[in-house]
Write a protein that binds this DNA or RNA. Sequence first.
DNA 1: CCGATATGGCACACGAGTGTTCCACTGGCT
DNA 2: AGCCAGTGGAACACTCGTGTGCCATATCGG
Lengths: 188, 188
Amino acid sequence: MTTDIATGARGRTRKAILDAAVRALAQDPAASLGQIADAADVGRTTLHRYFPDRAELLAAVAQEAGQQLSDAAGRARLDDGPGLDALLRSCQTLLQLGDLLTLMFSEVVSIEACGSELGFTQALDDACARGLADGTLDTRLTAGWVQGVLWSSLYLGWSELREGTTPSHDVVSQLLLTVRKALAAPAD
Amino acid sequence: MTTDIATGARGRTRKAILDAAVRALAQDPAASLGQIADAADVGRTTLHRYFPDRAELLAAVAQEAGQQLSDAAGRARLDDGPGLDALLRSCQTLLQLGDLLTLMFSEVVSIEACGSELGFTQALDDACARGLADGTLDTRLTAGWVQGVLWSSLYLGWSELREGTTPSHDVVSQLLLTVRKALAAPAD
DNA sequence: CCGATATGGCACACGAGTGTTCCACTGGCT
DNA sequence: AGCCAGTGGAACACTCGTGTGCCATATCGG
């Protein structure tokens, strides 16, 4: 407990490196350790002191991503209410992951690898299945396709958001609108 | 004309290298020239004979992509009929680009760089504007967002297709269904 | 004040990818 | 046969990222 993972100087710089890694890798999936160290305002030596390998750094980033992912899923209350509403809520919370979304889509870290550990993937599957069963989702679509629409739309939203030219509110409203229209069961 | 770009042995191996580059770079955006040469069943020396630089190879790939892109756009007849229908047609033709889509999304090749030259970007913009004006597209959406939905859905469809687990016909039908529902103007 | 901890800079060795050069081989053509 | 374009392989030098070790410096707590 004297050297906890989040205590004092060690914890602070560790987090700084991790954050910088997410930022730098999102901007360039092949960013060198030197670039990451620079982004963290840290010497490359120090980076190696915390993460001996590039692989270990990536693993730590993946773990961090998994944590954020399951936090966002928790905030979305995936188990509550109609399936479609749960998915739309998760759109909003997942959008806050920011650069982590870029990392998942550029496959620097795999969604399955860090999401499955904490049951996130399972919760999302369940929400899709529930939505197809409770009549809120279009049954002409596969559960897998529904998830795919969610992720690709999320990526689109984050791209627009990162661009900075569209106000955050407009992005969210257009995102929710298109996803709902695309996935909702037909009126008749 | 004795040494045209597509004539005889030189043209054939050039095309083989280009195709292999698309394949290899789609699978791994950081593929080495050696890997590309292997994929083309060609010595690395030969590859350098055709494309002295890695940059030149990438430029050639981009040009090829631009050509394919504008061909697909032509087949989709972007200027004909209601805007929404034109976009749905382009979904189908663009899906045939295959690995080239992966290259565009992994930003090995930028859509703007190779698409703008041939007026493809312009034609797509026009189709979106026409759709918003003729009442086939949902006017609550931005033209930019409409294009974004098109591309991200296209990426989703190609991902499923490449996976190989879903039959081609099912992918196309789900793709067209979700895109149409997402972008179509509301019934009332 | 002093020691422990954390950090930064520097230098080194190592491997991978790249671009170049040179030479040998094969095929088709006259 | 000889010629020649096209090709493949080996060798080389160069760059860049990586991982390691060492030493000087700063900062915090006693």
